[in-house]
């Protein structure tokens, strides 16, 4: 049994009196997709923000790739190989799709105190960016402004930007949020293609996506992990059904 790529132990975070993350233990094995589900307000996005370094944890440890990253900033974690996507689409709308991805590559191509050469004519940024866009199927949209892309394409671009940082692990915060059935299906297929190449922490509301992609599922309720197991185990877990799945069915 190999070591987990991401290991979270006894993680806590509260906002005033509200406990958002409550002594949470969690891990992701190399190559695994570990999904986190839970009702609204369960603390899923807070959890992602803590791992990505946007929120400081109150206590607990986060180990990534053998290093304790609790004290690292978000950019430092990005450079260690953690890439996140956002629940609310946050591509740079007035940049082209190509410029969006090129910016991700630039972030990992040394410092950016380069004041003279035109960035959008820089082959060392543009060529790999175009290749990633081709890979995710947005190649022909490269020169469109990101804000003009369809919602589903923006979400794909968002993940392309994460991929451009050459990550070891993806933190995906509801990649199918706001999508119709058809778009969700495309995203599901897209993520399935990435499966195996990247470890993923997948936050998701869409049960079809979770149960078809995830190797393991953790159910979060009020910041607590109430159950972890294979999709099948979770589906049959009585506590989970009453706490969460039951509401839907």
């Amino acid at each position: 049994m190999s070591e987990p790529l991401l290991k979270v132990e006894q993680l806590c975070k509260s906002f005033g009196g509200v406990v958002a993350t409550d002594n949470l233990d969690f891990d992701v094995m190399p190559g695994e997709i570990h999904a986190v589900i839970g009702p609204n307000g369960a603390g899923k996005t807070t959890f992602v923000a803590q791992i990505a370094g946007m929120l400081k944890s109150d206590s607990g440890s986060i180990t990534f790739d053998g290093n304790d990253i609790a004290g690292k900033t978000a950019p430092e974690r990005s450079h260690m190989g953690l890439a996140r996507s956002f629940q609310i689409t946050s591509v740079f709308k007035n940049f082209t799709a190509l410029e969006n991805v090129a910016l991700s590559i630039q972030a990992h191509a040394g410092h950016s105190f380069k004041f003279w050469k035109r960035a959008s004519g820089d082959k060392t940024l543009i060529e790999p960016a175009q290749k990633i866009l081709d890979d995710v199927g947005l190649g022909d949209k490269a020169l469109n402004l990101a804000g003009n892309l369809a919602h589903g394409q923006q979400r794909q671009l968002e993940i392309a930007m994460a991929l451009a940082t050459s990550p070891k692990m993806l933190l995906l915060d509801e990649p199918t949020a706001g999508m119709g059935t058809e778009e969700s299906e495309i995203m599901r297929k897209f993520l399935n293609d990435l499966k195996g190449d990247y470890s993923m922490l997948l936050i998701e509301h869409d049960m079809d996506t979770v149960f078809s992609l995830a190797d393991r599922v953790t159910v979060l309720v009020y910041g607590r992990g109430i159950a972890t197991g294979t999709p099948k185990e979770i589906r049959n877990n009585a506590e989970v059904r009453s706490a969460y799945l039951g509401e839907d069915e």
């Binding site: 990505a52 370094g53 946007m54 900033t73 978000a74 950019p75 430092e76 990005s78 450079h79 890439a83 996140r84 956002f86 946050s90 591509v91 740079f92 709308k93 007035n94 940049f95 910016l103 991700s104 972030a107 990992h108 950016s112 930007m161 994460a162 451009a164 940082t165």
Partner: peptide, 15 residues
Amino acid sequence: GSHSNDARMQAIGFP
């Protein structure tokens, strides 16, 4: 980029 979305810039690795 940081004008547009600073959190995003940090997430892709820019201090």
